[in-house]
Design a binder for these strands. Structure first.
Lengths: 244, 244
DNA sequence: TACAAAAATTTCGTATACAAAAAATGTTCC
DNA sequence: GGAACATTTTTTGTATACGAAATTTTTGTA
């Protein structure tokens, strides 16, 4: 009722009736859209996110967009500069180190408990995710693979039963995706395709210590694959492009 | 122009020129006011936080208040119920366990690095904080003691140099204050007064392992001091109170 | 007096309006 | 021709307005 015909061109059905829930869910959908776009590298670090543009794309007013932007800023996926607006965060090398150190501590520390609590259905679900990830990699769909990898790590943490730590891991994985986008070498994705399957195997066997050690190596391998050079493309963009 | 005479006594200069910064800082001040009030138990778990009331108290419009409320909700200090508004979070027993397990993992895991990086000035600052805390305890100022204790733990994590993990610890400490408010027995505060001094001693000596072990015992002691009974005061409030 | 239905009030959710700041563009003067 | 300044346009920050849902109060009836 409150949103009548403020979108005269597209037709009135988009924002009101199309099965979009009661508004609170709509916000969640938009949040996930932007979040996914960032995690999948379809929005690259440094990309500006103007409020008006997002308003047009999603058909909600700036009030709603700003709420979402603020939430993304808290998860450090976007950076809010006082009077310059929002942009996709460009992680520094220091931040990258912090994130991977944190993952090392939390994800490895969680493995014993995960091994203790993992169930048959969990294993099946995880193997399915790993299979999807491998398939995506084979098909050259980097975006999908990156998202699936992060989702797998996050799901793993959830199984521990500690919602707080699972939430931390979720955020660290999202930020890791951003870090991969900036410092990852093209073609070589962070996670080896068979790593996750091996890890699931250790957990299924109830071997928490082994799983933790493997996770540690896994994360170290990802971090080692990064090329930590902070490139800054403020203005040189055009110069380098048109120089020859 | 936009804020008429909501502060008739102070004159119109308060919100723009009166030394209060450019608005962004003002928000921070208000955020901290509410946050502190919650951490110090001056706002008790379950207390409602009506937007209009906060609007009047702080002299900013609902837009600003809601931004702050949303931030507090993300840190789990307040709970936002869809059409009921905001209230101070009342942690469940499960959440309490998660928070202390998380602190156990992160704070203890951080101690070795803290022991490695701690400096003379850090030690002096920490001892000063511990002294203030002990003093507050002696003076019966529970509110101040609780806040100082949380601040000490948070500062400790900062010294590790990992901003991400320090941020996690900061949030966990805030939530711990809430947990203390609900499950803590009156009179017996979580931290023993001399514990923190001992801990600083180990760190100063560069003994990370010992510090980690001590921190573990320290946190266990706090958790053990809680009485985990979930009282619920939905409606029976008035009935039980006036029944005899 | 007790219970139920309806009106009234409160309070939140969202859109819009307006002002201020920054960026971009055009103009003028040297 | 280039740099400094003014103007216009864009974009963000904040307040307010309006509508909907929920709670409370009132009122009528049994």
């Amino acid at each position: 009722m409150n949103q009548r015909q403020r979108e005269p061109k597209r037709g009135p059905s988009l924002s009101r009736r199309g099965k979009d829930g009661d508004g609170a869910e709509r916000q969640e959908v938009i949040y996930r859209s932007i979040s996914d776009a960032i995690i999948e590298h379809r929005l690259k670090p440094g990309a500006r996110l103007r409020e008006d543009a997002l308003t047009e794309v999603f058909g909600v007013s700036r009030t709603g967009i700003r709420k979402i932007l603020q939430r993304l800023a808290m998860e450090q996926l976007v950076t809010l500069t006082p009077r310059r607006g929002a942009s996709v965060t460009r992680p520094t090398a220091d931040e990258a180190k912090d994130v991977f150190d944190a993952r090392q501590m939390i994800e490895c520390g969680l493995m014993p408990e995960v091994a203790r609590r993992i169930s048959e259905v969990d294993v099946r679900e995880l193997r399915d995710m790993a299979r999807c990830e491998r398939q995506a990699l084979k098909d050259g769909e980097q975006s999908a693979a990156i998202k699936l990898s992060a989702a797998l790590h996050a799901r793993l943490a959830e199984i521990s039963g500690n919602a707080t730590l699972a939430d931390f891991v979720d955020r660290l994985c999202s930020r890791s995706s951003l870090i991969l986008a900036v410092y990852g070498s093209a073609g070589h994705l962070g996670c080896e395709s068979h790593d996750h399957d091996d890890l699931i195997g250790y957990l299924e066997a109830g071997n928490g210590e082994r799983a933790a050690a493997f996770m540690s190596r896994h994360l170290k391998a990802i971090e080692a694959s990064l090329s930590m050079v902070e490139e800054e493309d403020k203005a040189p963009d055009l110069h380098t492009i048109f120089s020859r």
